[in-house]
Design a protein around this nucleic acid. Sequence first.
DNA 1: AGTCCCTGCGCG
DNA 2: AAAGCGCGCAGGGACT
Length: 570
Amino acid sequence: MDTIYFDIETSGLDPFKHRPTLFQIKRASDKTIRIFNPGKAKLGNSQKIEGIKELLESNLVVGHNLKFDLKFLRHHFNIEPTNIFDTYIAEILISGGQKARQKGAATLETVAREYTGIQLKKDQVIRQSFNGQELTQEQIQYAAMDVAVLPEIHAKQRQQLKELGLEKVFATEMSCIPATVWLELSGTPIDVEEAKKLEKETRGKLESSRLNVLTILKEAGYRNLDLEGMPAVNLDSPAKLLKALKAIGLDLASTDESTLSAMKHPAGKALKEYRKHQKLLNTFLEKLPKHINPATGRIHANFNQYGTLAGRFSCSKPNLQQLPRDKNIRALFKGNNGSKIITADYSQIELRILAEVSKEPKFIELFNSGGDLHKLTASLIFNKQLDQVSKEERNIAKTINFGLSYGMGAGGLQSNLKDNGIEISSDDARKYIDTFFKSYPKVKWYLEEAGQSAVRDNEIRNIAGRLIKYRPATNESERAAILREGKNNPIQSLNADILKGAMGRLYHKLKSFRAKLINVVHDELVFEVPGEHAETVSLIVKEEMEAAGREYLKSLPVIAEVTVGDVWQK
DNA sequence: AGTCCCTGCGCG
DNA sequence: AAAGCGCGCAGGGACT
């Protein structure tokens, strides 16, 4: 097995619109860098592509941000390397996720400078001129440099991954790259006609809710009126809105949702209604159709595999991870030509992870017996029999169960519950949290230890070995922030490892079913599958997701809940 | 016109 | 003063 250092140049960023213009290949066993123009209609070109396919699919391929290169390779040449080493992902991992946050910190230019001292030319003009025409000697030199730096970067990163004990997590990351390529090339189907309809409907609701707010202001005595005699207030400007509310005798500290919820005045409710429609329209309904790729009729979002400190994906253009749970919105994501949508999500994965890492017997026992954790917590907090727990008590317990793994305090619990229409005193909030930790002492101990070690070491690891580093605190509030992050990150990041493991498995298992991976949302995978394969695929998805979970969760079951339907749903 | 920060809010 | 974690995006507003 040889090592192939690899890079491509393209005529643009979109594999459906642009094409590869240059391959740069250096074999470890070979001194020279070979430059090849894959677009050239030359005699023997297709044999040459076949040769490159064989080369890339049967050796270790090293490159920087291989997701990009692999998308073009797969789309244009049906080349799918799986034995890969990505120096971009490696760099972020070695930094303990820090370089996911710092813009430009893990570009090839920066990494090359840091590892080899070589300053690459990333001149846009030079890049853009790779348009398939004859290349100048100078351009070829620059293109060659991008692979010339790779051997040294690769060798040094490999050493660091080993020293830091990151090889296993790195392998998970690498297995996930082909799945992410699959995801981005698949794209997400959206029903444009339905979207337009919903947009129109929402526009009407927005307008009437706007009039409602203005009318309330006017009736409350607001005097600054426009030509039509309605209050002249920009509702989208929090500053102006605060002033307007003050003018009618409402002195608020903010116009955020919890403040509006707490208002007795009808303006609060009316504004919340206005905001809801405004958000729906401006962030989603108006924007989603703009992202449809004309070549495929689908939305091909950008999935950033190492998008957060803890190793979660982030998503942009558009962000398909923040689509409203609103049924009408999710139903816009519909299978094409009668294909089915498979929605698969991990059941209470973060609480299961907390059970595993804390070794809290009551948690573990509960998950092994398939009981209701929120109910159990409620019965312990309120000192009642399980069957005596009320709905509201269970809701309070649920908020605590979720919130505690983020380091929530009494004030946080109080305001969170308030948003859900439950009012409790701060004494009660304090009491509930105390009782919670008394009931689950190992959870308390685990969270305290995790937070304190994060503050002490400026880093923490999850049980998969993933490293999360913190910038040392310079003041008390930063220290408190690291304390909270240290409690949550080992849990959140293991969720990411499990999901990435599942994606890597499913990329291989679903090859023969014409299945498309169309979305990834932290603990959820969404597929589009031809109807005749839907049942089979849903079983495979469940099995592989659970198997990925079992790699780390040994003392309790991991459950993936799978739904087959015509649209994205739970 | 482009950039930055703030407020606010969508998701897990 | 207030403090639950992690993201990306929209609009406002200040600035260049």
